[in-house]
Design a protein around this nucleic acid. Structure first.
Lengths: 105, 105
DNA sequence: TACGATGTACGACGAACACCGTACGTTACC
DNA sequence: GGTAACGTACGGTGTTCGTCGTACATCGTA
């Protein structure tokens, strides 16, 4: 799996409506919140909720292909992080505004 | 039509993922941009793009039920405006961050 | 009342999505 | 090499969405 190449859109190619769609799901929003601090987390770490692995993979793919997250193979697992810099450059303040609050999925 | 009662969610009931979903479509994003200045516009005014009436009604319903816009009957037409105050109170900076840029749908 | 204008409601269609189980490919460790 | 852990890829099902045409309801005006 780790040798697999993940598709990541270029920073210039990010579109607003795709990003907003990626963030329009409670599960994916929870993932982004868990990555808010800038740390990298594995898919397993993000599985806190009662979500099957394959479902989580699906959500992570949508986040990745929208340009919200970056997936990096590291040994046996995949480390996922927010593309905070790219997002900030393209849509300043957007991510912070979305993650500023606590609840209200 | 004007005597019809439109459902508008309470300001407290707005959920982030529903708002983001409402904004995750290029047509709806264009509508919100057209309302950015705070003015009220009719559904017909928003029909600038080559979109059938019924399709526009559908999009306006999604925006309204997500709490992004408010629809007010006014004589023969419906006036639509952004719920800027409610949105700002619940998710500060969100709308501005989304509308800050120009392009990139 | 009859008419045109505005916008909604309803139904239909294809496409995309959410969800999950299962099978497969990698990696680490024995 | 064999095995277990981790995560993806694939296939299937049911649901929702985006789109549009058509029919209907409301308002203003003649």
């Amino acid at each position: 799996m780790s040798s697999r190449k993940f598709f990541h859109p270029e920073a210039d190619a990010l579109t607003l409506h795709r990003i907003l769609f990626a963030l329009s799901d409670p599960t994916r929003l929870a993932v982004v919140r868990a990555l808010k601090d800038g740390a990298e987390r594995s898919s397993g770490d993000l599985l806190a909720e009662s979500v099957p692995r394959s479902t989580m993979t699906h959500h992570l793919k949508i986040l990745r292909e929208a340009g919200v997250t970056r997936t990096r193979p590291e040994g046996m697992r995949c480390l996922i992080s927010l593309r905070h810099t790219d997002l900030e450059a393209r849509f300043p303040g957007l991510l912070d505004a979305i993650l500023a609050h606590g609840r209200s999925d």
